[in-house]
């Protein structure tokens, strides 16, 4: 994989996926940061990993399964006490058009 040159377009595309606004004045700064970090990261491209299985988690154990029981009581009041905006038990957001 050749080194990535982080363009303004790439910054904006990644920002869109990340749901972040990057001000016009900051785009070059982010592009420069990303370029440097990716250059650091790209050192690993020289390592031969052809037969190596990816390691997602340092634990070799397998997932324990939980009994199918209702253990969580209704705590709506408590949770919604710290919500930005609610009404009638619903969380409110600007109108979503499907």
């Amino acid at each position: 994989m050749p080194p990535i040159t982080v363009t303004q377009d790439l910054v904006l595309a990644v920002a869109e996926l990340s749901q972040l606004n990057i001000d016009g004045a900051d785009i070059d700064g982010y592009a420069a940061d990303m370029t440097k970090v990716l250059a650091l990261v790209e050192q690993m491209h020289g390592v031969d990993t052809s037969d190596i299985a990816p390691m997602s988690n340092p634990t070799d154990a397998s997932q324990q399964l939980r009994a199918d029981e209702v253990t969580e009581p209704d705590q709506r009041e408590r949770f919604q006490a710290i919500a930005p905006e609610t009404d009638g038990g619903f969380y409110l957001v600007p109108r979503v058009v499907e």
């Binding site: 009404d87 619903f90 969380y91 409110l92 957001v93 600007p94 979503v96 499907e98």
Partner: peptide, 15 residues
């Protein structure tokens, strides 16, 4: 579920 109807132009979210 998103409820689009009742909230004065806002959408209500029921999780």
């Amino acid at each position: 579920k998103s409820m689009h109807e009742d909230y004065h132009g806002q959408t209500g979210i029921d999780l």
